[in-house]
Nucleic acid binder design. Structure first.
Lengths: 144, 144
DNA sequence: TATAAATAGGATAATTTTATCCGAAATAAA
DNA sequence: TTTATTTCGGATAAAATTATCCTATTTATA
């Protein structure tokens, strides 16, 4: 469904959100440990998220990654997915046709629409704050 | 969503179904041309589908691939996807956790369930005959 | 039986995705 | 200003996926 890079990006963002709520910056090392991902690869993904203005980085000593507290509830999963995997999950054809729309649909076009709209709905109605709260309350987990 | 191999497998199966309805066997060459896929790679995927007992192959002169007419309406998309991509689309965690279930859910577990069940529903309630008929009536297309 | 036509399958190559390594640049604090 | 810490970014490597090529095997027909 999502690429590995995207999975790491989502989990990293949640972990950063949790810490930013407490005013703490985190390093790729801490992040990778907490979400069980390869550190250097994760660092690359964090750079993508910085460039997409989803998270902030502070260079130098005492630096790290953070998210503005007031932004946490406004960052939707869809933004993270889009920054890393692009919009193919939204717009791409389920069977890989270059052109696939109402006028020239692939065999599963109509059936796929429902799935895709459910996915879209989920990605656009889930924000980082909800996910961070669930982790903090022990209702969900970032690894294992 | 699906691998390229799986996309080719689905389209190839539909094309074989269409032809089998008319009692015609088809070759990897014809299939690849019709679904716009690399021929040799498509042939490999056809072998997988043969091994999974989804399509039949007839070797030698006048051979080719076919599906028993009476089976066409019983072959579900889910069988094809499972034969090629396995069941990770059903059972895999959306964020790649090794263990992710009701007791130890990943952050998007609950939200993902709805999407997955919609997908599962679609794959299990779509059969090759429906898809073949849509192509034959011009309601959907295998390429472009 | 010989031949031509077709799938089967192994070996290999190209591409994409995932992952690692290392030095440069930035920055806070001593 | 020096030092330690940290992100940034380029180069490279490893692994997985996608794709190609060639030969062996099978089989219907002449």
């Amino acid at each position: 469904m999502f690429s590995k890079a995207c999975e790491y990006g989502i989990k990293a963002s949640i972990f950063i959100a949790i810490n930013s709520r407490d005013g703490r910056r985190v390093s790729p090392k801490e992040i990778a440990k907490e979400i069980d991902s390869p550190q250097a690869f994760t660092a690359k993904i964090l750079q993508d998220l910085v460039r997409a203005n989803i998270i902030n980085s502070v260079k130098g000593a005492y630096g790290g990654f953070e998210i503005d507290k007031k932004d946490i509830s406004n960052i939707k999963l869809s933004q993270i997915v889009n920054a890393i995997d692009g919009d193919k999950i939204y717009n791409g054809c389920g069977l890989g046709l270059h052109t696939c729309d109402e006028e020239h649909p692939c065999p599963v076009h109509d059936k796929f629409k429902i799935v895709r709209s459910e996915l879209k709905n989920m990605l656009e109605n889930t924000n980082l704050e909800q996910l961070a709260l669930d982790i903090q309350s022990g209702a969900s987990f970032l690894k294992m």
